[in-house]
Design a protein around this nucleic acid. Structure first.
Length: 376
RNA sequence: UCCUCAGUAGCUCAGUUGGUCAGAGCACCUGACUGUUAAUCAGGGGGUCCUAGGUUCAAGUCCUAGCUGGGGAG
């Protein structure tokens, strides 16, 4: 895998780059829609590629391992073929599930034991096994197994957690180096910086990642409840340590404003469930702010969802119609709002790239942040 | 005409032997949602308990009459 920074913003750490993978090139900064179970919920693969212009999507190791399972994925020839997606895929390792499914897992030095939320069966995930699984899934970019440290975490816990994640990173990287892709394209391995909100821990973690020399690095454990200013401080600190010539991936973030601010801090890759999940629940992101389409005020608003919006649905359907669909719990409502929101996110990063290239990013970002912060 | 059952929130209904009995679900309104156990979750407004009398310290709860609706008999 190769990463090439093509343009740098003068007023901030924002930059544009091209990341080439086994399934083609990705322009950064990029937003990666989340497709946990081999589907970006509510959006089919053709719309995802042709309308949304997604360049890469996510899958999840834990969820795909449980269902459909490795035999089915291997039999299909990997996740790309299984789901009919020709562009790159990044898989999260299950590290987030260590956090989000804390009730049904036991954390040990060796790894994490999960009780399947589907049938209760026990499964032991180790840093090595998670690499093996991601080999079989066939992710272009596979993530190290980590613990997404919960918030708040006191210093001793955050330190223990961060250090274990470092040891897991070493083990995962070793397994990665000693194994080959299952299919006929390159796979790469990204480690994940942890350390909660403690600068000292973040620094240590980031330094070790930098040393490891992987083709890309991720920042995890943020946007889990801490104040946003602290999140930005951590990103700023970590990005000052992570190598400039490698892509930086901020995991699980975030709101459109979070994304713009983080691009300004030098982040290149993002993923978040927000556009799909919030979309299903009636939140519509637009250039002029966030809309709760369930609100009564849209009941008879026959204007387009978003004039000049990024998706074909924006001018094809009205707010009143979308409200009707969402309130009636019609499947199409979830589909339209997901498509709109994800297209909006991709539009946002596309605009950011072009502003960085033009050298007008700072002013544009300021203006956008103001607009995007509003509730309409 | 008689018998019988029912009448409690916008809707469908819970409310034990009269004493936190003014409740639920849905609907409506509003809010959350950040590497997806979420087409989810939380909160809010809203009722002269059909009407009028009566019994009782106390009545959606018991009694009488009426009104409305369902079922049945003639």
């Amino acid at each position: 895998m190769n990463f090439r920074v093509t343009d740098c913003d003068k007023g901030s750490a924002a930059r544009c780059g091209i990341l080439s993978t086994g399934h083609g090139e990705i322009e950064t900064p990029i937003f990666m829609p989340v497709g946990t179970q081999g589907t970006v919920k509510g959006i089919n693969q053709r719309d995802l590629a042709d309308d949304v212009h997604a360049q890469i999507i996510l899958g999840n190791t834990y969820h795909l391992f449980l269902r459909p399972g490795l035999d089915i994925l291997r039999g299909a020839g990997g996740l790309h073929r299984f789901i009919g997606w020709k562009l790159p895929i990044l898989t999260d390792s299950g590290g987030f599930q260590v956090f989000s499914l804390s009730d049904i897992r036991k954390l040990k030095e060796e790894g994490a034991e999960f009780r399947s939320h589907i049938d209760g069966a026990k499964h032991f995930f180790t840093p090595e096994r998670v690499v093996d699984i991601q080999r079989i899934i066939g992710a272009d970019i596979m993530m190290a197994f980590d613990e997404c440290t919960p918030y708040p975490a006191d210093y001793p816990y955050a330190k223990t957690s961060m250090e274990r994640t470092l040891r897991w990173m070493d083990r995962g990287l070793k397994r990665f180096s000693n194994t080959d892709p299952v299919y006929d394209y390159e796979q790469v391995f990204f480690p994940i910086v942890q350390g909660s909100i403690y600068p000292e821990l973040r620094r240590q973690s980031a330094e070790r990642m930098a040393e490891a020399g992987c083709p890309g690095n991720a920042i995890g454990g943020l946007a889990v409840g801490e104040p946003v200013t602290q999140m930005y401080e951590m990103i700023h600190l970590v990005n000052s340590i992570l190598p400039e010539d490698k892509p930086r991936y901020l995991m699980g973030v975030g709101t459109p404003v979070n994304i713009l601010e983080s691009i300004a801090l030098g982040v290149d890759m993002f993923d978040c469930v927000m556009p799909t999940r919030n979309g299903r629940n009636g939140s519509i992101f637009t250039r002029n702010g966030q809309i709760n389409i369930k609100n009564e005020k849209w009941k008879a608003d026959y204007s387009p969802i978003e004039e000049g919006g990024a998706s074909f649905v924006d001018e094809m359907f009205s707010k009143a119609y979308l409200r009707h669909l969402i309130i009636s719990k019609e499947i199409l409502g979830a589909q339209i709002s997901s498509l709109h929101n994800v297209a909006f996110y991709l539009w946002l990063v596309r605009e950011a790239r072009s502003k960085i290239k033009e050298g007008t990013f700072a002013g544009w970002k300021k203006e956008m942040v103001e607009k995007l912060s509003k509730k309409v």
